[in-house]
């Protein structure tokens, strides 16, 4: 569908589906803390080699800015394979070599348990029952948010075929496994006696572990792998956010007749502005747990779920209800985070006498969905203009090629399939 319609951003789809461009701002906003996390990762790695922190931050920012300003989207894509090989190598060496040095995983888990016993309830080696809802909602919220980000969707939408999307989706568990191994390195760091740094707190655990346990040259290689591993997604994110702005805001509202050159120049400037915004998050956001930056991004981007994911299935929602739901979700999630002083993304939700710790993204999404579902019939009843759905059922079902017409798409479909679509279209789109 994206190839047929020429969609590059999720906001492109929502503009056609619901005749609304409100989504673009959320994508740009939500990308900033995520980029901040990547810049911070590069900063911590450079600082671990003894470089003063201010200089580390400046270097991290300059590397990212120069990289994206000169090369666009293609260089990060080219570098991705090398980056993955470097990171896989470092992680595999770390989970095999360091545990052998420390006497095996048995010793490591023993050391972690001893720390949990000694901490008197502030640290747990196994998830306590009270944290189950927080963990479950964090997993659910993060999983749903992942494919709503402009950078992941831009990657998917710009692929050549469904086959590529399927193949990449099949390979994704390999990355999840890698992340599991990296999480295990947190336990290894405890067993190796790594203490939180006074400046970077426990965010420095892995670089400090590498610096302590690896020889100097391999530690240097590991930090380079971390830096490249952070640079590539940060570059893709800032470019995706910039293209979201130029395609869905600048060209649509400010300069509809702009040339491709003007669009590219605007994208470069916006990409730089997004990175400056990310820098502001590093300077002003409490970074006791840097992962909160990503979790904040998740809370914001998850609020686009009704328009993007549910929009794929139905156009029943009223576009004004979607916008109000989006704002309601953003406001709820942000207020929950503010009430926690930006130190945690888990909010203790009180339901009568029951208090359930939940990842703020999930209750915010519930508020968003409730607003969408309740306000849609109301707006329809009041006759508020709903815009026009420019997508067709054939867009969703056929195997289109760029430039093909709707009649060609319909002719590709089996008679049964066509009946199903016609029937479903009648239910979902009674106005057409």
């Amino acid at each position: 569908m994206a190839r047929h319609r020429g969609y590059v951003t999720p906001a492109d789809f929502v503009r056609d589906r619901f005749d609304s461009s409100a989504l673009a701002i959320t994508g740009i906003l939500a990308t900033m803390p995520y980029i901040a996390l990547q810049i911070y990762g590069i900063e911590v790695s450079i600082a671990q080699m003894g470089v003063p922190i201010e200089i580390s931050l400046i270097i991290a920012f300059a590397i990212l800015a120069a990289y994206t300003y000169t090369s666009g989207l293609r260089a990060p894509a080219m570098i991705a394979v090398v980056k993955d090989m470097c990171i896989w190598l470092v992680v595999l060496v770390a989970v095999i070599y360091i545990p052998i040095k420390l006497g095996g995983f048995g010793n490591i888990f023993k050391a972690v348990h001893a720390k949990a016993v000694a901490s008197g309830g502030t640290f747990h080696d196994v998830l306590p029952a009270a944290e189950y809802p927080a963990y479950a909602t964090l997993a659910l919220g993060s999983a749903l948010a992942l494919f709503l980000y402009p950078h992941t969707l831009t990657g998917i939408l710009s692929t050549n075929s469904r086959k590529v999307v399927r193949r990449n989706a099949a390979l994704l568990p390999a990355y999840t496994f890698l992340i599991g191994l990296i999480c295990l390195l947190g336990y290894v760091a405890i067993a190796a006696g790594i203490d939180p740094s006074p400046i970077y707190k426990s965010n420095v655990a892995l670089p400090a572990l590498f610096a302590k346990e690896f020889s100097a040259w391999f530690a240097g290689f590991s930090f380079a792998a971390i830096a490249i591993g952070a640079l590539t997604p940060a570059a893709i994110m800032s470019i995706a956010a910039a293209s979201l702005f130029t395609r869905n805001i600048y060209r649509e509202y400010f300069h509809p007749t702009c040339t491709e050159r003007e669009e590219a120049n605007t994208a470069r400037t916006v990409s730089l502005a997004v990175k400056v915004g990310a820098l502001a998050f590093i300077l002003f956001f409490p970074l006791t747990l840097a992962i909160n930056l990503q979790l904040l991004s998740n809370i914001w981007i998850l609020q686009t779920l009704p328009a993007v994911f549910l929009g794929l299935y139905t156009n029943w929602f009223h576009r004004r209800a979607l916008v109000i739901g989006l704002l309601g979700g953003l406001l709820t999630g942000t207020l929950m985070i503010i009430s926690r002083g930006f130190e945690s993304s888990v909010f203790p939700l009180s339901l009568g006498s029951l208090t359930i710790p939940m990842y703020a993204a999930v209750p915010a999404l519930v508020v968003n969905l409730l607003l969408c579902v309740c306000l849609t019939p109301l707006f329809k009843l009041l006759g508020v203009s709903n815009g026009r759905d420019n997508t067709t059922a054939a867009d969703f079902e056929a195997h289109p090629v760029a430039g093909s017409s709707e009649s060609l798409l319909l002719s590709q479909m089996t008679p049964n399939g066509r009946d199903d679509i016609t029937e479903r279209e009648g239910v979902l789109n009674p106005t057409r």
């Binding site: 470089v51 260089a75 490249i228």
Partner: peptide
């Protein structure tokens, strides 16, 4: 204090990978 051995390897690896990306970028047909 800066660990020059670590920093040296960091700079070499980082620069090599970046150059590789730009080289591939320059060679790509579009």
């Amino acid at each position: 204090m800066v660990n020059w051995e670590m920093l040296g390897v960091f700079i070499v690896v980082f620069t090599a990978v970046t150059i590789l990306a730009f080289w591939a970028f320059m060679l790509s047909p579009t």
